[in-house]
Design a protein around this nucleic acid. Structure first.
Lengths: 205, 205
DNA sequence: AAAACTAACTAACGTTTGTTAGTTTTATAA
DNA sequence: TTATAAAACTAACAAACGTTAGTTAGTTTT
């Protein structure tokens, strides 16, 4: 007991350093993958960004693909967690959709690199991991769609085609990633509000 | 004079063959780029698809990038032409937007490979060509935005944020490419109509 | 003080990449 | 049938790729 704690205290610094370095590598990898795509980003590029040789990176990670997996599945987990929470909240369906829209926008602004990788580079996952990824995504979409369906049944949404509505909403959100620049002078709250307004009420006068 | 015509007639068949083969290469390249991305698709992959050796492809094209350019700029031209026509039509602004939506949907269904390459692989263009591409795209977006702005001024659209409305519409359309499958049992007309309905009137009851 | 561990390095591996050069086959015209 | 041009081939290139091996210096544990 006593010994365990003591060991932890002593080991802390080196362990902490390792974790930090690894996190730096993952973070820079996300930035690089976003810029050049998974295939276009080389380990030597990445090495330069983190200030070491390409081979040295393998002291911290197992493979290039492990980086991709960590980015994709880490973020997927975040999406799932937040969806679960919103599902449980006792608010109306329009408010649930609006909350999801706000969450998506916030996530993009907070971690645009990871979101970009999740959106664009998941197809470079190994076929095993890709199956897992697609399963998670399909699950997410189904639960999102269910919120729309229930809203229609409850009479708070028009009788739209659920699939098309779902993909219209998700698509609109996906591309905040490409479009958003802090310099544009739009806060994330404004952005979420405007997107919600268009999707909820349309553009027609 | 006489000689020129004679030569043309004689050369025709072989020229035609060349054009056809080249078109096949470009078409298969689009399919391959969509599947694996520009970086992930090798010339040897492409060669196999068109039934020849990789080196032989260079009898028909100058470089791999030339394929990318042909796909991107060819389609960009199509978009521009159609936008020009719709701009000139004497219909209301909502109808113009709806016409553009229908056009985007149709183009995706007709030539999903090229649209996918245009959407995802333009960033692998050489920096020179990329500038041209971005200029064309910006021009397209500006003219699309102008239709929304004028609609607002005319009082047929709500006073929405034009940029956000524009990117919401374009985003929704971009992802038809990823989503649409003929097997889903939705005609392109239905699809365009449903998307238009949501963007024009929203989902809220 | 010895042993073990950490984190970096250099060098090199075997592949794959886009592309070029030179040669052979195929198709067409005279 | 023969000359010619087109379209394919084989072989090879240099560069870049992800990754492994072996080593070194510095730190921590025994």
């Amino acid at each position: 007991m006593y010994r365990t704690i003591a060991m932890k205290r002593i080991l802390m610094p080196s362990v902490k350093t390792k974790i930090t370095k690894r996190a730096l590598i993952v973070s820079e990898a996300a930035k690089l993958f976003k810029e050049k795509g998974f295939g276009g980003a080389s380990m030597r590029d990445l090495a330069e960004k983190v200030g070491m040789e390409a081979a040295s990176i393998y002291h911290h990670i197992r493979s290039k693909e492990e980086l991709l997996e960590e980015i994709c599945f880490g973020l997927a987990k975040t999406y799932e967690t937040q969806l679960s929470e919103i599902e449980q909240q006792k608010i109306g369906y329009p408010e649930k959709i609006e909350a999801l829209i706000a969450f998506h926008v916030q996530l993009i602004i907070e971690d645009v690199n990871a979101v970009s990788v999740l959106n664009n580079d998941w197809k470079y996952l190994s076929s095993e991991k890709m199956i897992d990824f697609k399963t998670m995504r399909k699950d997410y979409e189904k639960r999102f769609a269910a919120l729309i369906s229930k809203g229609i049944e409850a009479g708070v949404f028009k009788n739209v085609n659920v699939s098309i509505a779902l993909f219209t909403i998700l698509s609109s959100l996906r591309w905040v990633e490409l479009w958003y620049k802090p310099t544009r002078g739009v806060t994330k709250e404004d952005l979420a509000k405007n997107i919600s307004a268009i999707l909820m009420n349309g553009v027609k006068a």
